[in-house]
Amino acid sequence: MKLRKVTAASATVLALALSATACGSDSGKESGSGDGGDKITIGIKYDQPGLGLKTPDGFTGFDVDVATYVAKELGYAEDDIEFKETKSADRETALARGDVDFIAATYSITDERKQKVDFAGPYLLAHQDLLIRADDNVSKGDDLNGKKLCSVTGSTSAQNVKAKFAPDAQLQQVGTYSECLNGLQSGAVDALTTDDSILAGYASQEQYKGKFKLAGLKLSNENYGIGVKKGDKEMVDKINAALEKMVQDKSWDKAVKDNFGPANYKNEPAPKIGNIVK
């Protein structure tokens, strides 16, 4: 077989063609573009029933439903969504590195966080509250004085109760909220505290239905937003438009009922975009 000699000019053309092909062959997600690239990566929690929970069958929760709706409005099919576990301490870093395109993970909007990331939303107004046994009653924070209050180690929620409402509460800190729930069920503790949305999610689990209820004290305001890489105003605007549509077409109401209904969660109405309740 006779091979044709490649001239210098031909080699140059071939090299340029190969270079152009290589540049155009990146099939990865177009981070921050929101224009229906191949994939979109979304940060969520994996361990919060009712909000963001990884199960053998996939992912469930209100944050998951919100994130999925937003992604579809950005042009991504459900199969093109990649959920990535994003723990609280890692959220700002994950956005800055481009590990995720946005984060929907009980991410309260605060002035401190806004220095590092941008937020769309808020899409839910939650409150710090107490989870108590179904046959108990707590009408105000100081009812916890002398009672056993449970939360996870390092939680600011329990410290907030002791500092502002019940200085004589007996604080017990454990590794997981599930441990608190077991203690609440057995009578070892009298109340569990964190955001009411998180509490409602746990109380809605099949094994806990009818056993617990929210006290409804509204001890703080938590404006959940969708975190976006700092400076990506285009993405923020697109997500805000998607959130507004989710409220208008009642998908937001359905997501609340589907994920929190069994706990009789008295949720706030869907917040207006940009309306941060202090």
Rank of each mutant, 00 (worst) to 15 (best):
T106K: 14
R4K: 10
V138L: 02
D47Y: 15
K278F: 08
D168Q: 07
Q248C: 13
D38M: 15
Q185R: 09
D135L: 05
E222Q: 11
I276M: 03
C23W: 12
F165I: 03
T193F: 11
L16A: 09
G34P: 06
D80E: 14
K230H: 13
K266C: 07
P269W: 07
Y123F: 09
M235L: 12
V66K: 01
I226F: 06
Q128F: 13
S27A: 14
L217G: 01
E179H: 10
V66P: 00
Y177H: 14
K72E: 00
G201E: 07
I109S: 03
G227W: 00
S197R: 06
I103Q: 04
K266H: 11
D26H: 08
Q170R: 07
F59P: 01
A255D: 00
V100I: 06
A163W: 13
K218N: 12
F62N: 04
D47E: 13
T106G: 14
T60E: 10
G210V: 03
D142A: 07
Q207W: 09
Q185A: 11
T21M: 11
A22E: 05
A134V: 15
A215Q: 02
A188Q: 12
K54R: 08
W252I: 01
Q205V: 11
D253S: 11
T193C: 09
K72I: 00
T7R: 02
L131Q: 07
K164Q: 15
V189G: 02
V138F: 05
L181W: 03
F102A: 02
E222P: 08
D168R: 06
F212W: 00
E78I: 08
G61N: 08
A96R: 13
P271C: 03
L53Q: 12
G121T: 04
S186Y: 02
I40Q: 04
L192G: 09
K233H: 07
T153K: 14
K140I: 06
E85M: 12
A166W: 04
S157W: 07
D90R: 14
K233L: 09
K84W: 15
V256F: 04
F59S: 01
I198D: 10
D232E: 10
I40T: 10
K254V: 12
A215T: 01
K29M: 13
D79F: 12
